[in-house]
Design a binder for these strands. Structure first.
Length: 446
RNA sequence: GGAGAGGUCGCCUAGAGGCCUAGGGCGCCGCACUGGAAAUGCGGUAUGGGGCAACCCAUCGAGGGUUCGAAUCCCUCCCUCUCCGCCA
């Protein structure tokens, strides 16, 4: 991913400010500009020399065809000229290669500038755009016991791991035994809940929201991992099958966005909108100790992802639309949530604008991130050379890419278990999942 | 996994060291002819980079090599197809 050279030349100040707002090194902008200037000088001479060599080589061919001796003085002189040009070309190509590598390296470390409407600052500057639903408390009055003593007339909501244990729907220790810590096993209705959620999310996206369903591979090759910036930036977060040089996908974004790498959309083909389920594998290196209980942070989880390819002038609106699609799922599940507009230093290197959706988990009294929706504008598209024609026959230009979770399962499951639990340990099933699970309540085994 | 055949412009194909500055066909766009269309004729039809421009450079699956010169010869890798083996 990188910022465009053309834009860098035309408005370096915007790029520079964008880097500073994200807390990145802005001096790389000047370094890149200097390298770009040097590169163009070198390229100019190399091209001229190549033209010269092409001409001379052609002349050799014509001379020989015209009767000159292949070993004669005329041909020898031409040959010497060609060799001289060739030597200069080799030297220039080496230098250009070096400048190119440095330039690319500099560009890769210049972040995508945030949109103008993104708040500048760190996580404290994130803006809560809206909140939906009732924020249930952990301690709650027991229904029907109005006259009782206040201290005994409450029941305490349990964290999702307690609820799950009573229902016997997680097998976390056995998951650790067969794979490792952070590889949850879902049992019985727990497994059914996974399947029901995936089906519910996909069905809404496909039947109501106009997405095309994609069922991608769970591994990608190095070129794809590079395309979405997993390597080199986040290489230590991925599981790698080194023997075959394959990477386990950390999100469906990687295979699905790469579907159109090195392609040009025709004028009437955009937007292209995909919804894809995939398992997601994350090493979570550096996150040891955080959220180790339950299923809030695991090495393998399931997610339905939305991936959009849009015309540049439509991407801003598409982001708002996509956030709305994710919100709709939470509303139908009856889960309280809030939408955060992420500030420049909390949004990531490659995003131009990003919203996070956080669901309320009353058992642990925390907001849990269940979706992250981002507009990358042309930043990802440049790296993957994904372009479109604005009109038939027009010059190709970069598309805008966006993606967002719709939704990630584990924390939705946690929120359901904590929101819909009853004092007796049973959990009511949200309406949209009842048909799939074949019941409207999950009860602990006797 | 084994054996064989292939990968050339949006698609099909020619091409076998210099006439390739990649030819032809189809498709597409424009113009002419027409009342309008079909047919026909003429022209145009890749991507990236450099240059004010004329124009130049690179790219024939990818990367190396040989050569004054590579789509063409050599090496490595990737992919597709056919047959065989194995297999949910």
């Amino acid at each position: 991913m990188s910022v465009g050279l053309q834009r860098l030349r035309e408005e370096p100040e915007v790029i520079r400010k964008g880097a500073l707002d994200k807390g990145e090194d802005a001096t790389l902008v000047d370094a890149a500009l200097a390298l770009d200037a040097r590169r163009r000088v070198l390229l100019g001479e190399a091209d001229a020399r190549k033209a010269e060599r092409n001409t001379v080589s052609r002349q050799i061919g014509e001379a020989i065809k015209g009767g000159a001796a292949a070993g004669g003085p005329e041909v020898a002189a031409l040959r010497a000229a060609s060799v001289a040009a060739g030597e200069r070309i080799s030297a220039l190509d080496v230098e250009i290669g070096r400048v190119d590598a440095e330039l690319e390296d500099a560009l890769l470390r210049i972040p995508n500038p945030a949109d103008p409407d993104v708040p500048v600052g760190d996580a404290d500057s994130n803006v809560t755009v809206r909140t939906w639903g009732e924020l249930l408390p952990r301690l709650q009055p027991v229904a029907g016991e109005v006259g009782a003593d206040a201290s005994t007339a409450t029941w305490e909501r349990r964290p999702h791991w307690d609820v799950a244990e009573r229902l016997r729907i997680f097998e976390l220790e056995r998951g650790a035994k067969i794979a490792g810590s952070g590889f949850p096993v879902y049992r019985g209705a727990g497994a059914g809940l996974q399947r029901a959620l995936i089906d519910f999310f996909l069905t809404v996206h496909i039947r109501e929201n106009g997405f095309t369903e994609i069922w991608p591979p769970a591994v990608v090759n190095a070129a794809s991992a590079r395309g979405t910036g997993q390597i080199p930036d986040k290489e230590d977060q991925m599981y790698v099958a080194t023997r075959d040089e394959l990477y386990l996908v950390p999100t469906a974004e990687v295979p699905v966005t790469n579907l159109h790498r090195d392609e040009i959309f025709e004028a009437d083909e955009l937007p292209v909108r995909y919804a894809a389920y995939s398992p997601c594998f994350r090493r979570e290196a550096g996150a040891a100790g955080k959220d180790t209980r339950g299923i809030l942070r695991v090495h393998q989880f399931d997610k339905v992802e939305m991936v959009l390819f849009e015309k540049p002038d439509a991407s801003a609106e598409a982001l708002e639309w996509m956030v709305g699609r994710a919100e709709d799922l939470l509303r139908r599940l009856g889960l309280a949530y809030r939408v955060l507009l992420m500030a420049t230093r909390d949004m990531g290197f490659v995003q131009a604008k990003k919203y996070d959706l956080e669901v309320w988990a009353p058992g642990v009294e925390r907001w849990l991130e269940v979706s992250s929706c981002s507009n990358f504008r042309d930043y990802q598209a440049r790296r993957m050379a994904i372009r479109h024609r604005s009109a038939p026959g027009a010059r190709p230009e970069l598309v805008h890419t966006l993606n967002g979770s719709g939704l990630a399962l584990p924390r939705v499951v946690a929120a359901i278990l904590e929101t819909y639990q009853d004092p007796d340990g049973s959990v009511r099933v949200p309406g949209p999942l009842q048909a799939s699970l074949g019941t409207d309540v999950l009860r602990p085994p006797a």
